[in-house]
Design a binder for these strands. Structure first.
Lengths: 251, 251
DNA sequence: CAGTAGTGCGTATGGCATACGCAGAAGGGG
DNA sequence: CCCCTTCTGCGTATGCCATACGCACTACTG
C-alpha cells in the first residue's frame, strides 16, 4: 500500500529490489532486513517452517517481537523475502551455444537442488506469483535456455511453468517423505513399507485391482533413488517439449 | 495412535474407510463426521480456507468447539477428510478399449475440474501422501488408464505422479490469480496487466533481456484462456509419455 | 536548538488449537 | 431393576500467535 515509486509493492520488497535508500533522519536501525531474513531462514532450516514466528525470530536476534515490524510490514512479507533468500541467485548460465534441452535440464536440476536444500520452502503458504529479484533472475535463465527453440514468448512461458511446476511437485514428494520420517521416525524404507502395508490392508483388491497389482509388485515398498525418480519424470517432460520444438523447427 | 485394526491410521480416517462400527454404549452422538466435514468444506468454499477454524465450524453446526474433538482427533485430520470429500469419487471410467492417451487426458481434466471447483484444496497444508478412500479410487483410475501401455508398475506410478503434479501446479496458478483478484480487486486482465507493469518497472532490461523481451511481447498483459493454457501443458506432458510408451511398445 | 521522522519495544487485543475434567446419557450385566 | 461402564457435549483454561497502538527516545535538518 505504501507506494513511493508506484510499484504497488510493499516497502520491504522495494528494499529487496534495492530501491528505497535509507533516510538519514531518526536513530540508526539496530537490525536490518537482511539479518531478520537470515535468522528466519536459519530457523526454518533448523526446526521447520513452523518454528518461524515473529516472536521466535526476534528472540533469535536478541530483539523484541514488535521491533521486526519496523522492517517488515507483515509476516507474509517475511515469507516472500525468505523464499527469495533461499532460492538464491541462479548459478551461472551454461556456455553460449549449449542446446536448449541441456540448458533446461541443468536449470531444472539447479532449481531442484535449491529446493532440496530448503524443503521448508514448499510449505510456505503462497499468495501469488513471486516478484522478487532472485525469482526474476531464475526466470530469465529459463527464458534464455529456450532462446534457440523458435518458440513464441507465450509458449516459452508455458514451458518454463511446466518445468518449474514439475520440479516443485517432485520436490514436494521429497518433502512429504521427509515430513513422514520426522513425524513417525524410522528410515525412508520403513516409512515406505509401512505405507504400502497400510494400503494393502485398506484397499480392497476387488475394487482397486490396478492398485492391488501395483502393491503386489513391490515397487511401493522401498523408495527409489530420488535422483533416478527425478530424472525419469524430467526426461518425460523434456521429451514432450522436444516434440513441440521439433514441430516448430523441423530443421 | 489409537489403533484397533493395526492400520496406524487415526480413528477418523478409519471411520472414513468404513471400519470402526459404532459401539452401542453411551449417549447417541449429536453430530457426525460427515456433517462436520460438510460444514468445513462449505465454509472453505464460501470464505476460503482461512475461515475454517474449529470454533467457526462448530458455530456453523450449532455445537461447541470442543465437541468436534469427539469426532476428529486434530485439525489436520479434518483437513485430510475435507480433501477426500472435495476431490470426491472419480467419474465413471471411460469405455473399455479407450486408448491410454485419451483415458489419461480425461483423468487429468476431471481432476482439474475437481480442483477448480475447490481452489482452497491447494492451500491446505499437506503433511504426507493421502491415504483416503477417494484418493485411492482416483489413483486406481489413473493406473487403469495406463493398462495397455506395457509400462512396468514403477513407471506407471511415475507417470501418474507426473500428470497429477502437472494438474496441481496448473491449478495452483489459477488459485494464485484468484487470490490476487480477491486481494486487490479488479478483473483478471487488470491483475495481469498490473503485474506486467510492475515487472517492467523493476526488471532492468540490461540484466534481464529475455524477461524484457517477453514483457515487450505483451503476452503477460492479459491472461490466456485458462483451458487453452491447460491443454497446452497437458499436451506436452502426454507427448513426453507417448515417447516412452512408443519406445516400450514399438508396435 | 528546536522540530521531526524514525527507532525500539511494552502492552493489549483477539484469534487460535487443544488439554482436562465434569455432568449427564444410554446401554449391558448382575 | 439397578448400577456401572462407556461415551457424550461442552465450559474452562493454557499457551501460542499476529499485530494495533502509543510512549519514550534518538539523530539528523533546518
Amino acid at each position: 500500500m505504501s507506494d513511493s515509486d508506484g510499484t504497488g509493492l510493499s516497502a520491504s520488497l522495494e528494499a529487496a529490489w534495492g530501491l528505497r535508500e535509507r533516510p538519514g533522519k531518526g536513530p540508526r536501525p539496530g537490525l536490518s532486513l537482511e539479518r531478520i531474513v537470515d535468522a528466519a531462514v536459519g530457523l526454518a532450516a533448523a526446526e521447520g517452517l513452523g518454528a518461524v514466528s515473529m516472536g521466535r525470530v526476534a528472540k533469535e536476534l536478541g530483539a523484541s517481537t514488535m521491533s521486526l515490524y519496523r522492517y517488515v510490514g507483515a509476516k507474509d512479507e517475511l515469507y516472500v523475502l525468505m523464499l527469495d533468500r533461499a532460492i538464491g541467485a541462479p548459478p551461472p548460465p551454461p556456455a553460449p551455444g549449449t542446446g536448449w534441452r541441456e540448458a533446461l535440464a541443468a536449470w531444472a536440476w539447479q532449481q531442484r537442488d535449491a529446493l532440496r536444500r530448503n524443503l521448508w520452502m514448499l510449505r510456505v503458504p503462497v499468495s501469488g506469483p513471486p516478484i522478487t529479484p532472485n525469482s526474476v533472475a531464475w526466470w530469465e535463465r529459463g527464458m534464455v535456455a529456450l532462446d534457440g527453440t523458435g518458440l513464441d514468448e507465450g509458449a516459452k512461458i508455458s514451458v518454463i511453468l511446466l518445468v518449474s511446476g514439475y520440479v516443485r511437485s517432485e520436490a514436494g514428494l521429497m518433502a512429504d517423505l521427509d515430513a513422514a520420517i520426522r513425524a513417525t521416525g524410522g528410515t525412508p524404507q520403513q516409512v515406505m513399507s509401512r505405507h504400502a502395508r497400510t494400503l494393502r490392508r485398506l484397499a480392497d483388491p476387488d475394487r482397486y485391482p490396478a492398485v492391488a497389482r501395483m502393491l503386489a509388485s513391490g515397487v511401493m515398498d522401498e523408495p527409489d533413488d530420488p535422483d533416478f525418480e527425478f530424472t525419469f519424470g524430467l526426461d518425460r517432460v523434456l521429451d514432450g517439449i522436444q516434440v513441440l520444438v521439433d514441430r516448430v523447427t523441423p530443421g
